[in-house]
Design a protein around this nucleic acid. Structure first.
Lengths: 189, 189
DNA sequence: GGCTATTTTTGACATAAATCAAAAAGTGCA
DNA sequence: TGCACTTTTTGATTTATGTCAAAAATAGCC
């Protein structure tokens, strides 16, 4: 699994730990449009995206579907509000493409982190990574124009443009689908 | 110190660990307007805000001062981009009021976390807390109006309104100072 | 305690992006 | 291969918020 080499890159793992991890992750093949997680549910799994694309989204007060983020290949995924606070989640998660995931119960993750310092470190690394990413996103949403935010997305996740429908990308960027369409066709410079 | 009881609440600490922590934190009294950290510098300290208020801000491409966040009493603070990536920071940090902080070298924090599982847990808790907070902020900036974002701030950090100048709050909310002034005077409903 | 300097408010106007609506293009499937 | 359904584009109009400028209010200080 690709997963192991990624973990190993973050913090070196003993063969024993590696074996244990491999034993716990279960392969899941999901078809396009499959809903892995529904808002209101507790999330009890950690996922690793081997192949495919996940979309995390929520419904706002008006019932509009808003994309919170995309999870591409080689990323870990879990529903943070549910996991961190042990409460029903605001978010939904769907596969935007046929996807291959590896999943592990979060209860197992907790045990592994207790048992192996090295995995606790990996976990911290991942948290820090997401925290940095989120702060960049806040910065962008604070004062960058729609065009600039689109440009940033093009740099960071260029494939998303081809892989996800326009409406999903637009809400991720905090704009309407019409505005995104116009940005693409360069009506705005 | 308040600090210890807060840590203890997150994960129970042995007396030994508590003593060690107390020994490492150094009290710092800073006058209003003191700049604790300048962009381009490496941040090498963890802070705990005992009294007062910190503002983390950066200068955008146009040289405009943008508030990234406020750090109130009983919160931990460090400059995340610098600490997580060991590189010069984008951010500046200033005391908005006369403040009492406790500080510890980040190198000591790293050592403590290696040595004491309980502290590693506290660290994870704090990271998770900030991550949740940031995701709420992203949600707000994605599609809430200026008025709604202001209302949210009023709920979450009501004292900020009195403690920080308008311009700082405005940029934190991602709006101009004029718009914030109008929101306050209810020209917008 | 009066005088600058700074911060906040107010006003007039400009503009990016939203909204509403409908046409065009693309996609899936019988 | 054609037809329904979905997604994207385009157009006309509105609106929230930005910009620029100046007045009013507030705060710091000799």
């Amino acid at each position: 699994m690709n997963l192991i080499s990624i973990l190993n890159n973050i913090a070196p793992l003993s063969t024993e730990v590696q074996q244990e991890i491999i034993g716990l992750f279960k392969k899941e093949c999901l078809p396009r449009h499959h809903l892995l997680h529904r808002n209101g549910d507790l999330c009890n799994k950690l996922y690793f995206v081997e192949k495919g694309l996940l979309r995390i989204f929520y419904y706002n007060d008006l019932g509009k579907d808003i994309t919170y983020r995309f999870q591409e290949e080689n990323q870990f995924h879990t529903v943070i509000d549910s996991y961190f606070q042990q409460k029903p989640s605001l978010y939904n998660v769907e596969a935007l493409e046929d996807s291959i995931l590896y999943s592990m119960p979060l209860s197992e993750l907790d045990k592994l982190r207790e048992k192996h310092l090295s995995l606790q470190k990996v976990y911290i690394f991942v948290l820090q990574h997401f925290l940095l990413e989120n702060s960049e996103r806040i910065t962008a949403l604070q004062f960058h124009s729609a065009q600039e935010r689109y440009n940033t997305l093009m740099e960071k996740q260029p494939l998303i443009i081809q892989r996800a429908p326009l409406g999903h990308i637009a809400s991720y960027l905090g704009i309407t689908q019409e505005t995104l369409s116009r940005i693409r066709s360069r009506i705005y410079s």
